[in-house]
């Protein structure tokens, strides 16, 4: 299975082809559009992370193949960001996720989306992803 580092490198390479911000955001928007829909029953208020600007829903379950996440947002750029974040952590082992920092965002110039002033729900989502990693550690599936 691909490690987190393999997947980060894939994404960094993918984004290296974009010369300007418009291409990059066009790509982010299409990632947002392609992100798999979350099962409506899982879009509960418990799974909701209330941002001031956009809402995020995150659900996770532990499987034999690692943690499987599903997430959604009402804003398309936030959905694009979710697609990138999940691509790296999807199916990884809890111990890998528990302390994961998502540093690749800096290399593709998208860290501003994790700035608290954006209030888009992504900062809390990243924390929540790690918390799932911590909570599922030591649990056998």
């Amino acid at each position: 299975m691909e490690t987190i580092i393999d997947r980060e490198e894939d994404i960094i390479e993918e984004f290296s082809f974009f010369d300007d911000w418009m291409d990059k955001y066009t790509h982010l928007i299409s990632l947002g559009k392609e992100l798999e829909q979350m099962i409506p029953e899982n879009k509960t208020s418990e799974n909701q992370i209330k941002g001031c600007q956009s809402q995020v829903w995150l659900n996770a379950k532990l499987t034999e193949n690692g943690i499987l996440f599903e997430a959604d947002s009402d804003a398309i750029i936030t959905r694009g960001m979710i697609a990138l974040l999940l691509r790296v952590v999807q199916g990884q082992k809890p111990e890998k996720i528990a302390s994961y920092e998502f540093n690749f965002l800096e290399k593709i110039g998208l860290t501003t989306h994790l700035s608290p002033s954006r209030a888009n729900g992504l900062v809390s989502m990243v924390k929540q992803i790690r918390l799932y990693g911590v909570a599922f550690q030591g649990k056998k599936k």
Partner: peptide
């Protein structure tokens, strides 16, 4: 068909400061 946040993020990329949200 668009969320205000998306509009604000893209305008910001072009140096336009607006407020979005509630």
């Amino acid at each position: 068909g668009s969320h205000p946040y998306d509009v604000g993020v893209l305008l910001d990329q072009m140096g336009i400061a607006v407020r979005t949200g509630h």
